[in-house]
Structures are given as C-alpha cells and as structure tokens.
Amino acid sequence: MSLTLLLFLILGVLSIASAIVTISSRNPVVSAMALVLHFFMLSGLYLTLQAQFVAVMQILVYAGAIMVLVVFVIMLLNLGDEKKLSEKWNIRRIVAILFAFVLAIQFISIYITNLPDAAFIPESAAFNGTVQAIGTDLFTNYLVQFEAIAVLLLAAIVGALLLAKRKIT
C-alpha cells in the first residue's frame, strides 16, 4: 500500500466521519468543531492532489474566517441546554435514509460492474497547484469567468442586504 493511498484512506474516513458528526450532533458547538475538523481533512486531501494553494485557502477562508463567524453566531444566539435541537424519527426521515442507501448502492454497483481504469489519468488533469499556475490560468484561460464571479459576489451582497434590512415605513 503506497503512502498516498494510506493518507487518502485516513483523510477520507476522517472527513466523512466528521461530516456525519456535524449533521448528527445535538450540540451546536460540537457540530461546529466537527466542521472545523472536516475542513482540515479536506485541505489534507487537496494536498495529496498537489493543490497546495487550494489547501491553504481552505484553511484560511473556511476553517479560519467562516468558522469564526459560525462560532460567534452560536455564541450570540446563546443556546442553552434546554434549547438543544431535537428531532424525532418519522416516516420522512426513514424514507430519506432509504433513498440515501439506494443512491450509495447505485454508486457502488457502477464501480463494481464498470471498474475504472486505474492507469487512466487525463493529460491536463495532471496539474500543478501552485499560486503561479493558478494565477496564470485565472487571468488567461478563465478571465471571463473571473470577471463573472464579481457579479456573483455583488448579487450576493446586494441580496443579503436587501433581505436583512428593516422595513422602512
């Protein structure tokens, strides 16, 4: 077993486990901390794919900035023990889990009947994730998309302000 595969298995299992803890935990702080762990595991996975820049950004932006906001919101909401979220088992939940299993079985069956060619690596997918490589791509090949992202962010900001501002009467 190669080191890359071993790393992938450890990181993958941990990231899935922490994601499950995030959505199943009754305590919001535990959920938030599990999410931080999940982000770190993801950035580890990016590193195994030689995407250093994305890995660093993952930690800085998600684990750093966004999670601080999430934890602050949890603190300001001041959720006490009695307000811990609770959810009952109902038919909807059972059906949802059933469908998730069906989806998983479908995925697995596609893999089993149709094993991917291990040696198949498309040429341009062999990619060097340095800042320089990403910068060059972003400002030459994907320049239009880079500009379009500006409109996406502007729309998100204006929309958030619009929904959050108080009604003026």
């Binding site: 239009v144 998309q145 379009a148 992202i149 409109v151 996406l152 729309a155 998100a156 204006v158 929309g159 619009l162 929904l163 009604k167």
Partner: peptide
Amino acid sequence: SLFIGIEIMSISFYVLAGYFR
C-alpha cells in the same frame, strides 16, 4: 461559465422570491 451563470441566476432568484420580506 455554465456553473457561474446558474449560480448568479439562482442567487438572484432566491432573493427575488423573498422580496416581500
């Protein structure tokens, strides 16, 4: 570009749907 376009459209629609806040 397809994905970015779909996202710009969807985010505007989320806000427009809740315009009567």
